[in-house]
């Protein structure tokens, strides 16, 4: 089962890019996607297609990653189509709702922008190992340490949270099975009954995690942990590909600025 944000192991150029570069690029791209007009969007689309090709991800990944948000996309489209302002196309109308040309244009653009946002971030998570993401974030947040943001501890916290997600799910299944064995019913009983059954899972789950947290802290202390700076096995180092990626992002931004200055408009 493929899901949003899943990591795909690989050794491509995109995989090997410095996580910091990837994170910043994704942010820059996201901003440009939200602000950009058609020419910028087209350029970004090309860039994303190139990144998918270079990373060795199957192109199918683009469609799969949109699947969880398909209803949002449809709703966006629908809202813009029928509630946008502009010239109504009289032949396509139901009561007070009627299609407008501007609505069609805005709707499609919003769907396009939204898809690009999802693709951008899903390439980031698909090609970067979670711990790489975390340590990349930590390095990026490091300057904030001066104003008292404990970036080291934050990064460790996020990384431990990531590490325990699968354990959490396993535990949930175990508790569920234990309750099923004692005739708990999670499927029928209507919304109220099902909510009550789910609430019954919550207490043992939370208890088990408090206990785990306790054990984990002891284990971490035993391994010499104390809050504050630690050293990392994989120090990040920028390579040629990273500088290339940065250059591409700078060019993209320049293009966007020129585009909006000259108001090289679309229709």
């Amino acid at each position: 089962m493929v899901h949003l944000g899943q990591y795909f192991p690989g050794d491509s150029v995109i995989h090997r890019l410095d996580p910091r570069v990837k994170i910043v690029s994704t942010i820059v791209m996201s901003v440009l996607i939200l602000w950009g007009e058609i020419p910028s969007l087209m350029l970004i689309t090309l860039l994303i297609l190139f990144a998918v090709g270079a990373s060795g991800l199957p192109f199918r990944h683009l469609i799969i990653s949109l699947r969880p948000v398909r209803f949002f996309l449809l709703i966006f489209l629908f809202l813009h189509l029928f509630f946008g302002e502009g010239v109504h196309i009289a032949s396509v109308s139901w009561g007070p709702f009627s299609l407008t040309l501007e609505g069609l244009y805005r709707g499609l653009t919003v769907v396009w922008q939204f898809s690009l946002l999802i693709w951008g971030s899903s390439i980031l998570t698909a090609t970067t190992f979670p711990s790489g993401l975390v340590s990349g974030l930590e390095k990026l947040l490091r300057p904030l340490k001066k104003i008292g943001v404990p970036s080291h501890d934050l990064a460790l916290m996020v990384s431990i949270a990531l590490r325990f997600v699968p354990t959490f799910l396993e535990e949930l299944e175990r508790i569920k099975d234990a309750q099923k064995a004692r005739c708990a019913d999670f499927r029928s009983g209507g919304p109220v009954g099902r909510t009550r059954a789910a609430a019954g899972l919550l207490v043992p789950l939370v208890l088990s995690f408090v206990r785990r947290a306790d054990d984990l802290i002891v284990a971490m202390e035993a391994r010499g942990f104390r809050s504050g700076p630690r050293t990392n096995m994989n120090e990040m180092q920028m390579a040629r590909a990273d500088y290339a990626a940065i250059t591409v992002m700078v060019l993209l931004t320049v293009f966007y600025i020129l585009d909006s200055l000259t108001a090289f408009g679309w229709p």
Partner: peptide, 18 residues
């Protein structure tokens, strides 16, 4: 409850990192 890292090698590196 004693493994901290998201991968095996990262976990082993926790102590030396400390």
């Amino acid at each position: 409850t004693q493994i901290v890292g998201t991968t095996v090698e990262e976990d082993v590196s926790f102590g030396p990192g400390n």
